[in-house]
Simulated assay, not measured.
Amino acid sequence: MAAGTIRYWAAAKAAAGTAEEPYAAATLKEALDGVRERHPGELTRVLRRCSFLIDGDPVGTRDHETVRLAEGGTVEVLPPFAGG
């Protein structure tokens, strides 16, 4: 199990009520399961529309169960937004 930081942006940040929080998980799926437990409600709905970066690399369509997290890593939670 790795420990790191989850950073929320835009609507995800508003729904979480915080800009970032720690994770303790081996995979992205485990980290997001923990987020859903800590923040039931609006953030859970927002996560369905989000894309994710792991240490700067896009997750894309990979199964979250296969995305390993590194010790000291960062998960960026990016909801869709308008503009460029």
Rank of each mutant, 00 (worst) to 15 (best):
A19L: 06
E20K: 14
E20C: 05
E20W: 09
E20P: 02
Y23C: 05
Y23F: 15
Y23W: 11
A25G: 08
A25V: 06
A25C: 12
A26G: 15
A26Q: 14
A26D: 14
A26T: 02
T27K: 14
T27M: 13
K29W: 03
E30I: 01
E30A: 15
E30D: 14
A31P: 04
L32A: 05
L32V: 00
D33T: 05
V35S: 05
V35G: 07
R36V: 06
R36F: 07
R36M: 12
E37C: 04
E37D: 11
E37Q: 14
R38M: 08
R38T: 01
R38P: 08
H39W: 12
H39E: 00
H39P: 02
P40H: 11
P40G: 04
G41H: 09
G41L: 10
E42I: 00
L43D: 01
L43Q: 02
T44I: 00
R45L: 10
V46G: 10
V46M: 07
L47D: 02
L47W: 03
L47A: 02
R48W: 01
R49A: 11
R49E: 10
C50E: 02
S51W: 05
F52T: 00
F52M: 06
F52I: 00
L53W: 07
I54Y: 10
I54N: 08
D55I: 00
G56T: 06
G56K: 05
G56I: 02
G56D: 04
P58S: 06
V59W: 13
V59E: 12
V59M: 12
G60D: 10
G60T: 01
G60H: 03
G60R: 11
T61M: 13
T61S: 15
R62T: 02
R62K: 15
D63W: 05
D63R: 14
H64G: 13
H64P: 04
H64K: 09
E65Y: 01
